[in-house]
């Protein structure tokens, strides 16, 4: 049985090659001039001048997009973590009037497609002047992330033995103290999951970012790159250099955290 290993290796290699070829081609094209890209698309570049990546990064103002994306994603994840864990704690641990109905409300959110609300949300945000600000996207992204996060956190808390909390109560712990000192520390493994889901949902979010952010200095990566790609759409070398260089930090972050990301992802879908 073991001897078939190479067959699988071969299959996987072929698949991976097909899969990686466009990305590799893009990176290599960044070293070629426009004429070379068109006339000899498959040839290797004559020389490798890595300065083109620096140029693309600075010409395109890519740092700005990157920082905005990181900021929006980070704050959104933080707010989701905080508010969803508080809510999940109440749903999981307290008996109170309307708890079922409120939970139901959140659970509907799990299925609601973005289409169901973005048209009116746009008008609402317009009315309240919430559009086109550095943090405009935080509110919709938090709203987007809360249902799933609440559900996941609640599932975690439900699995904890109730004795833990009862003991704390006997010791005179207040409701908040129980959240802070009992529930929160135990939620740590869930935090990675929720953070990963929120981050994956917001990092590349396109539709809302396109509608809400027009100001150059507030653009996130997806919309910033769209501007860049339409401005330099005929300068393929610069375009490919920019597209390559923006993906490098993402790949580094991913490889560094891939264990947590994959674990988080699967925890979420297994719950």
């Amino acid at each position: 049985m073991k001897k078939f290993s190479w067959v699988f290796h071969l299959l996987l290699s072929i698949y991976s090659l097909f899969f990686a070829a466009p990305l590799i081609w893009m990176a290599l094209s960044a070293f070629k001039g426009n004429d070379e890209i068109f006339d000899k698309p498959f040839s290797l570049p004559h020389s490798y001048n890595f300065k083109v990546f620096l140029d693309a990064w600075s010409v395109g103002g890519l740092s700005k997009y990157f920082i905005n994306s990181a900021l929006i994603t980070g704050i959104s994840a933080l707010v989701v973590l905080l508010s969803a864990s508080l809510a999940a704690f109440a749903f999981s641990r307290f008996d109170f009037k309307g708890s079922k109905q409120l939970l139901m409300l959140f659970m509907i959110g799990l299925l609601l497609p973005i289409q169901s609300y973005f048209i009116s949300q746009n008008k609402l945000f317009e009315y309240l002047h919430l559009k086109d600000h550095k943090l405009s996207l935080v509110i919709p992204y938090v709203g987007l992330g809360i249902p799933l996060a609440t559900w996941l956190f609640k599932a975690y808390l439900d699995s904890l033995p109730k004795e833990l909390f009862e003991a704390a109560r006997v010791d005179g712990g207040s409701d908040f103290a129980m959240y802070r000192y009992v529930a929160a520390p135990l939620l740590k493994p869930g935090i990675a999951t929720v953070a990963v889901f929120t981050a994956l949902g917001t990092w590349n979010e396109f539709l809302l970012a396109m509608i809400y952010i027009q100001n150059e200095s507030y653009k996130t990566i997806p919309i910033g790159l769209l501007t860049f790609s339409s401005r330099y759409s005929t300068d393929y070398q610069l375009l490919f250099a920019a597209l390559t260089v923006i993906t490098i930090p993402m790949i580094i972050i991913y490889i560094a955290f891939n264990r947590q990301i994959v674990a988080g992802l699967t925890e979420g879908s297994l719950k």
């Binding site: 600000h133 550095k134 509110i139």
Partner: peptide, 9 residues
């Protein structure tokens, strides 16, 4: 944090 975000705009 969020209202601040909106007012500053």
């Amino acid at each position: 944090a969020t209202t601040l975000a909106s007012c500053g705009g």
